[in-house]
Structures are given as C-alpha cells and as structure tokens.
Design a protein around this nucleic acid. Structure first.
Length: 191
DNA sequence: ATACCGATTAACT
DNA sequence: GTTAATCGGTATA
C-alpha cells in the first residue's frame, strides 16, 4: 500500500528515516516502472541541524521545497553532477528531509540497467537516482501522486538488522556531523 | 562581478 | 590511496 500523507507529516524525522528502511520506492517516469527496496537513509533535521541545507532557516530557490508539507520530493544537484533524492517530512513550514542513499532493485531491472549503461548497482544517492530516472526536474513532486511514491509491502526489517551511525560527507557540520542519523541494512542481511 | 565549496562517483595510480 | 567531472549556493566586493 502507498504510504499515506500521515506517514510523512509526523514530527520525528529520525524515526521516519529508520522506518523508511524496507519500504519500496516506486517510479513511473517516461512510461517506465521501477521499484526498489530502500536500504539506506539519512535524516536532516531542519533549521537546527548544521548539516541541513535549511540550517539557520536558509531559504533559497533550491531549498524552498524543503518547507513544503511532508510527502514532497526534494531533488537537488550535488557537485554539479549528481541528482540527490530526498523525502520532505513534517508539516508545511518545517524543513525536515530524509536522503535516500541506497536501494535494492525489485522491478524494472532492465530499465535500471539501461539507464546505468550496463552497470547494475543501485547503491549511493547519485547512482540510485539515475537507475530510477529521478532528476532535479522532479523536485516538488507529490509523493502521493503517480510519478514517484513509496509503498509498504510488508517487508519486515528487524531493528537488530539496521545499523545506525553518523552521516556521510557532512564533516563541515561540526558536532552535528556525529549525530546518529544514518540508517542502513546490515550487509549480511541485504535481500 | 569573482571565488570557493559541496548530503558524490568512477576511474585512475 | 588520489583526482576530475561540473554547476548552484553562498560569501565577498
């Protein structure tokens, strides 16, 4: 079943990041259906989080969509090359988000392979966006629509199979770089 | 206007 | 282990 608005509008972005592990990210982009299990996420906790683009209330053309209601896509260009896909959470006006860092292919594998020009992995936030067809043009997309959405398919990932740790690539965030906001399925329990 | 840097990746040595 | 790729945001002027 497609995750309802109420899943995304809850206030605890760290809990949402953990709960997204095992959910299924589905896209229908350019008439191509793809689906993949979410295996790695990171929480970005809004204006008080130095690692967040919305730290200190920053609000630009790029980050404006972070202030939308939960269940909206935030896609931005990183290093001028990579399109990074985030799920906006919390209510309108509170810029929380969860970065999806890795997935495991379920459906539309041929599409993913073609988009990846023969490569098969879908780990890494830039890599999975290519495989699923997600680009910066999709920022602002409603995750309750029929282009990009997330489903609960009753895949159970026990909490002891989820590794918690600090986020990647946010050394500039000082003490906030050490927060345990990254979640991933332990390698020995990947599908 | 210019300069620097980043929630990364793949291809190198 | 190192580094090129490439562009929007941010700071400074």
């Amino acid at each position: 079943m497609k995750l309802p608005r109420s899943f995304y509008t809850r206030p605890d972005v760290v809990a949402i990041a953990r709960e997204l592990i095992g959910k299924v990210l589905v896209t229908r982009i350019e008439e191509r259906m793809t689906a993949a299990i979410i295996t790695e996420t990171e929480a970005y906790a809004g204006v008080g989080d130095k690692a967040s683009h919305a730290w200190n209330g920053r609000r630009t053309a790029r980050t404006e969509v972070m202030y939308a209601q939960g269940g909206t896509a935030y896609v931005y260009l990183c290093y001028g090359i990579h399109h990074l896909f985030n799920v906006v959470t919390h209510v309108e006006g509170v810029p929380h988000a969860v970065l999806i860092r890795a997935v495991h292919p379920l459906e539309g594998v041929a599409h993913m392979r073609e988009r990846r020009q023969g490569r098969t992995t879908t780990d890494g936030p830039g890599t999975l966006s290519i495989a699923l067809g997600i680009r910066t043009a999709h920022t602002g997309t409603d995750l309750l629509g029929d282009t990009i959405w997330i489903e609960d398919r009753d895949i159970i990932v026990p909490r002891r199979h989820i590794i918690t740790g600090p986020r990647i690539g946010v050394d500039y965030a000082g003490a906030d770089a050490l927060l345990p906001y990254r979640f991933r399925v332990s390698p020995s329990h990947l599908p």
